[in-house]
């Protein structure tokens, strides 16, 4: 195992950088938000970022796995359809996940 001092330094660096990246926009925020371009961009951003996160989630599906990613794809389809139907966040996530789990562990 690497020396405790090295491990502590590595973790300390990761913590400091991560926290700084999260904090800086809030400190710089008031000035930035006064600019028109930042006002527009930050209005468009939340929708765009969750769309990117959703595409990222779908991109982690492993199509080369023995099940060709079918359980996760089916789960994603069920999640989206149930959500459009009932618009209940919890219900959509649970039904999609259950479909994915059942297919992955019991069928494939």
């Amino acid at each position: 195992m690497p020396s405790p001092a090295y491990v502590a330094a590595a973790i300390g660096i990761a913590v400091a950088i991560t926290f700084a990246l999260r904090l800086i926009p809030f400190l710089a925020g008031p000035k930035l938000r006064d600019s028109q371009v930042m006002a527009s961009v930050s209005r468009w951003m939340p929708l765009g970022i969750v769309v990117i996160l959703a595409v990222y989630g779908l991109s982690t599906i492993d199509f080369s796995a023995p099940d060709h990613g079918v359980p996760a794809l089916a789960g994603a389809a069920v999640t989206a359809l149930v959500h459009l139907w009932r618009r209940n966040v919890l219900l959509s996530i649970l039904s999609g996940t259950v479909v994915c789990l059942v297919l992955a562990n019991l069928v494939f």
Binding site: T60, A76, L84, A104
Partner: peptide
């Protein structure tokens, strides 16, 4: 249990749909 990490993919799908439906 295989596929437990799917729960986060499902979360992001739902939140993207929800954000779009709201705006």
């Amino acid at each position: 249990i295989e596929g437990m990490d799917f729960i986060l993919t499902a979360l992001f799908i739902v939140l993207a749909l929800e954000a779009y439906l709201e705006r």
